[in-house]
C-alpha cells in the first residue's frame, strides 16, 4: 500500500480525527490560559482577603467554559468516526470542528482578561462584582455561537 492508497482508504478517519483533536486542543489551551490568568489574580486576592474565595472562584471558572464546549463537540464528532469513512466525510467533520476550535481558543483568553480585571472590582468594591461577572460572560457569547454552529454542522449533513 503506498501513501496515496492509504490517503484514499483512511483519509476520512484521519481528517475526522484531526477535527476531534483540534476541538479539544485549541479551546483547551485557551481555557487553560484564561483560567490561569484569573487564577493568578484571585490568588493575589486570597493572600490579602481569603474570605472572598467564593466569589473569586465564580470569576475564575468563567473562562473554563470554552474548553467544555470543545470537549462536547469532540465527543459528538467522535461518535461519527469509523475507519472506512470517506475523505469528504472526514473533511466535513474537520470543518465542523473549526468554529469552536478557533473561537473557543481566543475568546477564552479574552474572557480571562476581563475576568481578571473583574477580580480588581471584587478586591475594591465587593458589591459591584456582579457587573464584572456580566462583562466577562458577554465575551463568551461568541464562543457559544461557534459552539452551536459546530453542533448544527455536525448534525446537519448525513453521509
Amino acid at each position: 500500500m503506498n501513501f496515496a492508497e492509504i490517503f484514499v482508504n483512511f483519509g476520512g478517519v484521519v481528517f475526522g480525527g484531526l477535527g476531534v483533536a483540534l476541538a479539544v486542543i485549541m479551546p483547551g489551551i485557551g481555557s487553560a490560559r484564561g483560567v490561569g490568568l484569573v487564577g493568578e489574580a484571585t490568588s493575589g486576592l486570597m493572600i490579602e482577603e481569603p474570605e472572598k474565595f467564593g466569589k473569586s472562584l465564580l470569576l475564575e471558572l468563567l473562562p473554563g467554559t470554552q474548553g467544555l464546549y470543545g470537549f462536547v463537540i469532540a465527543l459528538l464528532a467522535m461518535g461519527q468516526l469509523y475507519s472506512t469513512m470517506e475523505i469528504a466525510h472526514g473533511l466535513f467533520i474537520l470543518m465542523a470542528c473549526l468554529p469552536i476550535a478557533f473561537v473557543g481558543w481566543k475568546s477564552a483568553i479574552f474572557q480571562g482578561k476581563v475576568a481578571a480585571a473583574g477580580v480588581s472590582i471584587l478586591a475594591k468594591n465587593e458589591q459591584q462584582t456582579t457587573k464584572g461577572i456580566i462583562f466577562s460572560v458577554m465575551v463568551e457569547t461568541y464562543a457559544l455561537l461557534a459552539f452551536v454552529l459546530s453542533l448544527i454542522l455536525l448534525n446537519s449533513v448525513t453521509f
Binding site: L68, V72, L144, L145, F147, V148
Partner: peptide, 9 residues
C-alpha cells in the same frame, strides 16, 4: 444557543 449548549453539555 444557550438552550442547546446546556442540554448538550
Amino acid at each position: 444557543a444557550l438552550g442547546l449548549s446546556s442540554a448538550f453539555i
